[in-house]
Design a protein around this nucleic acid. Structure first.
Lengths: 352, 352
DNA sequence: GACAAAAGTTTACGCGGGTAAAGTTTTTGT
DNA sequence: ACAAAAACTTTACCCGCGTAAACTTTTGTC
């Protein structure tokens, strides 16, 4: 709300200010002091500050960002790279990160790999040339060009989140073993033990979740049953739908309870079951229980609403940003590269 | 695939190249010529080009973007601003635009207003200071600070898309009157004439669609019935769900056929009907027909799949980018600010 | 092989602002 | 009121690259 006035008075009879030199003259303060002001308004005397701010009101000058960044070793830019921005999960995370950055006086710039390695590399190259103060990366995972990512992280202070490739100064993500165990435990207590529905893994999370499922099932004395459907890319719903149609037709699902590797896959499977006329849920008369993972923004709106495990978005983003800011301030984490995992919560809805 | 090798040989015993001066020396070509090369590789002799490219292989140098842009009047940056990136509709459009820009040798940079005016203004300010060659804006609409948007468009060649506020050099979007008419016509032919389900309009599209609905209904000799549910913000599904629950409980829907102002609202309404135990679709025994608008990426996965009208994503993005590139080349459209509208197509699925 | 055109080299300056150094003014503290 | 500290002004140079001017070398053609 601060500066969201138009610029009514600013275009008056006064000439246009283009450079800091001109602005300094107009405000009656020397250029080096003005420069100091823009670097940190608190670093100049109050009377000076008010003169400059009075001039700012009058002429809407802002320093040339390219000239600034040419001379400063570290810019105020923070790069954010996610694998797939069309996935609201990442869109939501990005929104949170952006807000934190702005609050801290940085300039977030967002890139998406759109699920493709070449796009990811492009984004890294563009980002690198912007010489950002730091970067928050959620790599594609299996699809990443790890050398390129590593090379980037050597030049730019980097925190990796969501998908744990062994790069950067720290990792922040979800504790898949905890969250999956929570869900498996619940499903086993409340009905038939689940099978695990997945597609070929795109990142380490997918692998960890399968392992966690197997481990939990064994701990509870059940035989783990993993069903992998074909598919690649990031159109998870479509893959879930097609795989689900096939499995249901063939009656090839090894259990009436299905734990999906993530919510988007579950959305596809639910659509398949629906089209096949199967009733989903834990109510009497239902043929199938379906559960997901992530508490995706859409999962509240499936029919029936999806039972899932939440990822702690807020903690993940806040912690990532926090660590990055420490890094930028020069506070390297001591010891090994830290890996911070947040627990998930069970979100019980009607689907399982 | 071009440059997506790692950089195996580049970190050999050779020293690190930091400036174009150093790089020129290392490649055996003078700096002005190297500069020419980076501006346009085709502008130097083939033998020179190959020398430079050989050096590029050896030392992975890239020019300092800030120094470049300080001197060039127009940068190679193109700004993209959308109202809500967590909406896959915009995410999809952004992906297309980005690709076109990269293909044309520009650097797309994406911003999202996250549904908020202050964020939109922030993004415009950041973008402006980047001195982009041009910008593609999808404004918030009703929530926009029009003065700020206009001020931006006066400094930067701007094409507006999706939401037609009267700013910029051109507008590209959907022909809501055509698409809504298509749907109303279909719904009337195939069953009970629809009522129109909307929330308080966030942008001109929403208004146009209501008007188009009313017009089409009158043309067909039916009484238009508009149902507006309360809600604000960009969480359309939630608004649709809550509004739908209420309307169904109160039996306040004026028709068994509901045309929603957009697919996201329809997703919410479907969820509501589902939770209330109402069967949706045109099959016998169904209580409610629900149709949407946009052919949103999710609409294939609702239960039942959503009947809707597609927006011509591809044409909209291609045309927007095309016009912007013309603008950047200095080819102003003659005559009035052009408004280009693309027709939608009927997408028949099971929900209506 | 001569010669004009094309391309490359040298030299030099400018972009807009960071920042150091030395000198001057204003603000503190007592 | 006076000295020390803090802040400001002047001056000057630097960042990394674009680009113009004047000159030299390489191409391509007859």
């Amino acid at each position: 709300m601060d500066g969201s006035h138009g610029n009514e008075g600013k275009l008056g009879a006064t000439r246009k200010i283009r450079t800091m030199e001109e602005f300094a003259e107009a405000s009656g303060i020397s250029r080096p002091t003005v420069s100091k002001y823009f670097h940190d308004p608190a670093s100049v005397r109050a009377t000076t500050r008010s003169k400059i701010e009075a001039a700012l009101e009058k002429y809407d000058y802002q320093p040339n960002i390219f000239a600034i960044n040419q001379n400063r070793k570290l810019t105020k830019t923070i790069g954010i790279l996610v694998p797939f921005l069309a996935d609201p999960f990442f869109a939501e995370i990005v929104r949170n990160i952006e807000q934190s950055c702005i609050k801290a006086g940085f300039w977030p710039i967002v890139f998406s790999a759109h699920g493709s390695q070449s796009a990811e590399n492009n984004a890294l190259a563009t980002l690198r040339s912007l010489r950002p103060a730091g970067a928050l990366l959620a790599p594609l995972g299996r699809g990443s060009d790890l050398d390129a990512v590593r090379h980037f992280a050597e030049e730019v202070p980097t925190v990796v989140f969501d998908s744990n490739v062994n790069v950067g100064e720290a990792f922040v993500g979800s504790n898949n073993f905890q969250s999956v165990d929570l869900m498996v435990d619940y499903l086993c207590r409340s009905g038939e033990p689940p099978c695990f529905f997945e597609m070929p893994p795109v990142n380490p999370n997918a692998n960890k979740r399968r392992e966690a499922y197997i481990q939990s099932m064994e701990r509870l004395g059940h035989e783990p049953k993993v069903v992998q459907v074909a598919g690649s890319g990031w159109e998870f719903e479509q893959i879930g739908l097609e795989g689900g149609m096939h499995l249901i037709s063939e009656r090839a699902l090894p259990s009436d309870t299905v734990l999906c590797s993530n919510d988007r896959l579950a959305v596809g499977l639910i659509a398949a079951a629906c089209q096949k006329g199967l009733r989903i849920g834990h109510a009497p008369g239902c043929a199938l229980r379906i559960a997901g993972h992530d508490d995706h923004p859409w999962s509240r709106f499936t029919c029936p609403p999806l039972t899932t495990v939440s990822q702690d978005y807020t903690s993940i983003t806040e912690r990532s940003v926090e660590i990055l800011f420490d890094l930028i301030r020069g506070e390297k984490p001591k010891g090994d590269r830290p890996e911070i995992l947040f627990d998930g919560k069970l979100i019980l809805r009607a689907s399982a």
